[in-house]
Amino acid sequence: MLLIHCPYCGMARPEIEFRHAGHAHIARPADPAAATDEEWAAYLYWRDNPKGLIAERWRHVHGCGRFFNAVRHTVTDKLLATYPAGAPRPEIDLP
C-alpha cells in the first residue's frame, strides 16, 4: 500500500483513503461538436501507459475530498511529487 502525500491536507496518508482517477493533464476537446473521431479516441482511449514516470490524478475521497495530481514511477511505484490540480507537471530528473 502506498503512502500518499495530499497537497491540500499537507500530510502523507495510506492509499486506501484515496481513489485513483486516471492519467493527469488530458484535456477534454474544447469544442466537442467540432472534434473528429480521432480527437475523441485520443481523449477517451489512447494512453502513453509508460514504463517509467507517469502523471496521474488522485482524489482524497476519505479526507478532504479534493482532486490532485501526482508523478509516480511505474516500476518502483515510488511517488516523486504531488501537486494541486491545475498546477503544471513538475520536471523530475531520474538518477
Binding site: 500500500m1 502506498l2 492509499e15 486506501i16 481513489r19 485513483h20 501507459n49 514504463k51 507517469i54 496521474e56 509516480r72 511505474t74 516500476v75 518502483t76 511505484d77
Partner: peptide, 13 residues
Amino acid sequence: DAYNSYSQTGALH
C-alpha cells in the same frame, strides 16, 4: 491494483 504499474507485485490490501 487501482493504478498503472509494471511492478509485477501488488498491494497487500
